[in-house]
């Protein structure tokens, strides 16, 4: 699986070698009873490798929906999603799972750690699914836990960690699998400002030192201020796209 996945990416990436995300005419409409509610309407967007992009906008502007479609968690009503050169149209549930597993790291608003696993095991989980060797997992997870500053708390279960610590474990989990893209949906929403600042710093450092691509949805001004590129979304449409 792993080998096959890399094959596909190297083939497909010939078309747009420097683009990690390429959206064209992306549209998502939810049905609520008889009424159709458009959440995302015709979004075109390109993200280059190594970018640190924030998707900003008010609640209900379609940030999370857009992020979910980029993350292969949700399927668009119309338009195409290309991630790391791979078009997501018409992939089966298993293939989508494979896509998420190999290319994408997630950080969720509500941490979403697996309660029965400790910090180390949570961070290790995706690598396990990827079929990495025990030796490699040990090495990588120790490193990423150290990077997020939790080397000492590796054996604690989520219930024994603070919110900020849990979210750092989530980041460790997201980056341990060396994804092409890390998606974070309102990662600081449930954190106090100190923890939030620390988390933002952590992500920037990872972006700088590891060259990891981040796409973060947020309306937290602290995040927006520090981003190199900010895309404003309103009513499911891009209203501005500014890079520093």
């Amino acid at each position: 699986m792993n080998v096959a996945g890399e094959d596909q990416s190297s083939q497909a990436s010939k078309a747009h070698p420097d683009l990690i995300v390429r959206l064209r005419g992306l549209t998502k409409t939810y049905r609520q009873g008889a009424i159709e509610v458009p959440a995302v309407r015709g979004v075109d967007l390109d993200l280059a490798r190594g970018e640190f992009t924030v998707l900003a906008g008010p609640s209900g502007s379609g940030k999370t929906t857009l992020l979910n479609m980029v993350g292969a968690l949700d399927t668009p009503t119309a338009g195409t999603v290309e991630v790391d050169g791979q078009t997501l149209d018409q992939l089966s549930a298993t293939q989508l799972a494979q896509m998420r597993l190999q290319r994408i790291g997630f950080v969720f608003q509500a941490y979403n750690l697996i309660p029965v696993l400790n910090a180390f095991e949570n961070a290790e989980y995706v690598m396990l699914l990827q079929g990495k060797t025990a030796e490699m997992r040990q090495r990588v997870v120790s490193r990423v836990l150290a990077q997020v500053g939790l080397a000492d708390l590796a054996s604690r279960r989520p219930a024994e960690l603070s919110g900020g610590q849990q979210q750092r474990v989530a980041v460790a989990r997201a980056i341990a699998s060396a994804p092409a893209l890390v998606l974070a949906d309102e990662p600081t929403a449930n954190l106090d400002s100190k923890s939030a600042t620390e988390l933002i710093e952590l992500m920037h450092t990872l972006n700088r030192t590891e060259g990891m691509t981040f796409l973060i949805s947020s309306h937290d001004t602290k995040i927006i201020e520090r981003a190199r590129r900010v895309i404003w979304l309103e009513d499911g449409k891009i209203v501005s796209d500014s890079a520093k």
Binding site: L101, N112, I114, L129
Partner: peptide, 16 residues
Amino acid sequence: TRQFGVMMALGTAPRR
């Protein structure tokens, strides 16, 4: 359900 959703989001295949 929520935990399973997360596991799936992280790329756990349905058969797993």
